[in-house]
Amino acid sequence: MSDVLSRICADKREQIAKDKQALSLADLEQRLDQISPPRGFYQALQKARADNRYGLICEIKMASPSKADPG
């Protein structure tokens, strides 16, 4: 793994550890009752395909974090 990706992974692990300390599992489970249900992305993609339309899930980035900064 590149140094950039290793750093991203390490930073994410650190953030997850902090988040776990800030919010208990019981509090998190309690919040689940207050959120909206999933919007059905899979069904929306199937409907688009059935309607002969494109069904896309995409992400557009200015640059990849695994590549060196060109700047």
Rank of each mutant, 00 (worst) to 15 (best):
Q30G: 05
D11I: 07
I8H: 06
D51Q: 00
R53M: 11
A50R: 08
E29T: 10
A22L: 05
Q34W: 00
R31V: 08
A10I: 08
A63D: 04
I60W: 00
I57K: 03
R39W: 09
R49I: 13
A48G: 04
Q21V: 09
L28C: 05
D19Q: 07
S64M: 06
K12D: 11
P37N: 05
N52Y: 03
I35P: 07
S66K: 12
N52G: 05
E59H: 14
K18H: 03
E29Y: 00
S64V: 06
D3P: 09
S24A: 01
S6F: 06
I16Y: 04
Q30S: 07
N52H: 05
I8R: 06
A48N: 00
S24H: 03
A63Y: 02
Y42H: 14
R49W: 13
G55E: 01
Y42S: 13
E14R: 05
L23W: 10
P38V: 12
R53P: 10
G55L: 03
V4P: 11
C58E: 02
Y54C: 14
Y54D: 13
L23S: 11
E59F: 15
A26E: 15
N52W: 04
K18D: 03
D51V: 04
R7K: 10
E29K: 06
M62D: 13
D19C: 07
I57A: 04
R39T: 15
K67F: 06
R7Y: 00
R13C: 01
D33L: 10
A44N: 04
E29L: 09
I60Y: 02
A68C: 10
A26F: 09
